[in-house]
């Protein structure tokens, strides 16, 4: 089905790309198993269809719709992972990971270390979030900074269909627990199809656009608006280097610092709330390492300090967009 769609338009969306990655992973390694709420085909293969076809092809022994029991879902992934399987557990939305926090934070993240390396937890937790859909305060939060603050968890957020494909496969094949964060608005955006078999390494950022004046660091849903800002500013003779972080933890310090050493200005942007966000860590490291070389203080863009509001005008004001990112970039060059 996804192949037909791809050849017709030459584009696939993130749902299709993720579906391709899961098919490939299950085909290649019989230790890959998939479970989560509504993921099997009788339940329509996931709420947006990411897991479509998997249970039909690989059977309901390996692909299971679960009870609404997030703690038990992640716990089962951990247990199966310890004994050599590669579970891909789906937690429908990022807010629901809170129900499984003990399993993720106290167990998945630490079992390798606490066992002195005797056990490890090669699991992937796929989840999704994103504001802009009018779902209010409990269905659109970003917790990547929470997870990044727990040593032992890898946190990944893809920005396009092809990125999602390559990064998900790397997460599944990785020997440590990965939190793979999909974006609900990006799900439906078409993009270049992935090249089958490709992997995008974890922990490596992607310099998507080279520039000399400012480094703009972003990930997930903020990559497209960052590129748009770079385009717009190039009209004004401002050359913006755009870096898609891809992996938030552990993040690619080398690439980011090399870029900022060149441009001597930096902005970090994300959809998550700004205070105590990922931007704070990256900004601090840039200041620690490159303070004397900077031409301006590093700027951060993020959502205001508020739960995600329901009302449309409030939600629009809550979500940082192109204008906010652009203003932050201009601030670093005193315009």
């Amino acid at each position: 089905m996804e192949n037909a769609a791809a050849s017709k338009s030459q584009k696939v969306n993130m749902i299709q790309a993720l579906n391709m990655a899961l098919h490939e992973a299950m085909e290649k390694d019989k230790n890959v198993i998939v479970f989560g709420e509504d993921v099997a085909d009788p339940e329509e293969g996931g709420i947006v269809g990411v897991t479509k076809g998997l249970s039909t092809k690989y059977g309901e022994l390996r692909v299971r719709s679960t009870p609404i029991s997030e703690q038990a879902i992640v716990g089962a992934a951990i247990g199966a992972g310890i004994v050599g399987m590669r579970p891909v557990a789906e937690i429908m939305l990022m807010n629901f990971t809170t129900v499984a926090m003990d399993m993720i934070v106290n167990h998945a993240a630490k079992l390798r270390f606490m066992s002195g390396g005797q056990t490890h937890v090669p699991i992937t937790i796929r989840t999704a979030t994103g504001s802009g859909l009018g779902v209010g305060g409990q269905h659109a939060d970003y917790y990547e900074a929470w997870f990044a603050h727990v040593p032992g968890l890898k946190v990944v957020m893809p920005s396009s269909p092809a990125e999602a494909y390559g990064l998900l496969l790397s997460c599944i094949e990785d020997d440590d627990p990965c939190i793979f964060v999909e974006n609900t608005l990006l799900y439906f955006a078409p993009g270049t199809p992935p090249v089958p078999g490709t992997r995008i390494p974890l922990g490596k950022a992607n310099v998507i656009r080279e520039g000399n004046d400012v480094t703009l660091i972003c990930y997930g849903p903020h990559v497209a608006p960052s590129l748009a800002v770079a385009d717009a500013l190039s009209q004004e003779n401002i050359s913006v280097e755009v870096i898609d972080l891809r992996t938030i933890a552990p993040w690619d310090k080398a690439t980011v610092l090399a870029s900022v050493a060149k441009t001597r200005r930096a902005v970090i942007t994300h959809e998550a709330v700004k205070p105590f966000g990922v931007g704070a860590e990256i900004s601090s490291v840039i200041h620690e390492e490159l303070f004397s070389q900077l031409k301006a203080p590093v700027q951060r863009v993020g959502a205001p300090y508020s739960p995600v509001p329901y009302s449309k005008p409030l939600e629009t004001a809550f979500m940082p967009g192109i204008e906010t990112i652009k203003a932050a970039v201009l601030k670093t060059i005193n315009r």
Binding site: G134, G136, G137, Q138, P307, Y310
Partner: peptide, 18 residues
């Protein structure tokens, strides 16, 4: 509230689910 208006039960901040 369902319409996200300031006169809603939650001033439009909560919405249908809250």
């Amino acid at each position: 509230e369902l319409a996200g208006k300031s006169t809603g039960t939650c001033k439009g901040k909560g919405g249908p689910m809250h």
